[in-house]
Design a protein around this nucleic acid. Structure first.
Lengths: 304, 304
DNA sequence: CGGGCTTATACTCATCACGAGTAGTAGAAA
DNA sequence: TTTCTACTACTCGTGATGAGTATAAGCCCG
């Protein structure tokens, strides 16, 4: 490995995307920034054996949160992403982690934001969001009409695949592709010509991109790993479970089929207790750990 | 964001896992280290707008390689992973990228290594590798017998799931879990008590862990994204395609079903040409780009 | 020049996952 | 007792997947 001439100091930070689902709403933990809200962040120090431990440490110190499930998401290192307090020309490397927690009370200086306030085009539970056809599709069409012929074709293909246009199917997992397309097309606040004119609530620097990455990853993972249970209490009804999954996927699921999937796969076991609801009381369940041995890809949502 | 007291200088490097498949053998590009082979690596410099562009630049400079498909894999930042030339107490952050290329002639100072020489327990194409039952399973059993009762149960569960023991199914994607388990159990050279006694060819520091990460990611991705075509020439026969997929998955596929899957999904289109083989000549195909619009998850291997 | 080898290609069959729908059940509230 | 809400049990059709049978098209060799 040769050390190039253009070496530069590198600043490394850890960013936490802490996710919870409360009452059908997926929420992400934000702290107040100078201007826009931002994700909680910290730096690894010499005493932290691993990056993940560093993250857990500062989540506890800064926000009093004991994180459960934690997974590394992505490392962001573009040149244009230094905050205003960073030395010019320095590259900031941000290692983003996804953490799943149960709902908790909001903490001082921080608050939960609805993920779908940040990314409104991602929530299809109440049907196709109007913002798609009203603003996004026309703007993408304009964006795709620019450039050389080859470039126009490439842009149109990207837009079609990401947003399920021209006969393509909407793929819930492509959240990042969608965000980046909107960014390039100037439709999200951080990149919009006039501040405040963008779609969805803006966040500092590229933090909304990180949330989009997290949502996409989680939507994928839910179909083959039992991660949802990290967001639920010890025991729960099948409808509660379904609501959390729907909140993550951003689409409704067929109730009977969901039940068949989850029970048939042996993902849950009945506790024997009943929980009073506003209708007929529901049986409560808990996660059934043995499923990890029985199935290679125990997911709580259909693959499609 | 508060700046903790324990801040430390951070060294950032990019590591490239460059993969090719030649004649049924998946290979990774290695460069000669002081002692053990290592992955090609470089540093981002101020002129590189993104980390991915930095990677492409130094791959071209250092090895004369023009990378095609590139994807970020994982960022490694444990404390114990500084090379011997690094200042003590410094944390080295390595952002690892996976790159797929067509086979090329070996370059000066670098060579292709068979991935399954590095991770012999991962290749099940010729049946279950003997090293599993001869060395790994007994050693894992010894490893799992240590610690408190709760710890023993947790270890046994991890081993069962990762290696498909006690009725669990072998999951090709869990390459990283397997490598880490072997590491903890002291079975891979880098961690082995006596050097040279480990299973598989050792690499510098944690580079073999990176290769394991890459293989696992690729095995997963192959089932829902048409990445294999990055490893193949423009046109190919279905058997060539199948051999590449099998090389990645480490298991054999049913020929007729593979054909049905690939043709039925519209992943390929016939070129009209025939290629002479050692038997009946085979029709050649090329990747059919339109499939990206037609299918949400166009994969070239079954999900299981 | 025909048998045997190798590889390619075309079908069939059973099973299972999944989307969608019908129907009936259990408790609470009015 | 009605009505509302939510829970639970089945059925049907389609498509994906694993596995196997049969046939075709070249080559090599005796």
């Amino acid at each position: 490995m040769t050390t190039g001439a253009g070496d530069q100091p590198t600043l490394a930070t850890l960013e936490a995307i802490v996710l919870a689902v409360t009452g059908g709403t997926p929420r992400v933990l934000c702290v107040d920034g100078d201007d826009l809200p931002r994700l909680p962040a910290g730096r690894p120090s010499a005493g932290d054996r691993t990056l993940e431990l560093a993250l857990r440490r500062f989540a506890a110190e800064q926000a009093g949160l004991e994180l459960g499930y934690v997974e590394q998401l992505y490392t962001f290192g573009d040149m244009n992403r230094a905050g205003r307090d960073a030395p010019a020309g320095a590259r900031v490397l941000s290692v983003a982690y996804l953490a799943l927690v149960h709902e908790t009370a909001p903490l001082a200086g921080s608050a939960w934001s609805d993920v779908y306030d940040l990314l409104p085009w991602e929530d299809h539970r109440g049907g196709r969001p109007p913002v798609l056809d009203d603003r996004i599709v026309p703007a993408l069409a304009r964006w795709a009409a620019k450039g050389s012929r080859a470039e126009r074709l490439a842009r149109a293909e990207r837009a079609d695949i990401a947003f399920g246009l021209s006969g393509a199917a909407w793929d819930g997992v492509r959240t990042l592709e969608r965000y980046e397309l909107l960014y390039e097309a100037g439709l999200v606040g951080e990149a919009a010509a006039r501040p405040g004119s963008g779609i969805g609530l803006a966040m500092a620097i590229d933090h909304r991109r990180m949330v989009a990455t997290a949502l996409g990853r989680l939507r994928g993972k839910v179909t083959y790993r039992p991660v949802v249970f990290e967001l639920l209490p010890e025991t729960f009804t099948l409808l509660q479970l379904q609501r959390v999954v729907e909140a993550l996927l951003g689409r409704m699921l067929h109730k009977q089929n969901f039940r068949r999937l989850v029970e048939g796969a042996g993902l849950v076991e009945p506790t024997g207790e009943k929980l009073a609801t506003s209708g007929r009381p529901a049986a409560t369940f808990r996660f059934r750990r043995e499923v990890l041995r029985e199935r290679a890809r125990p997911g709580v949502a259909p693959t499609a």
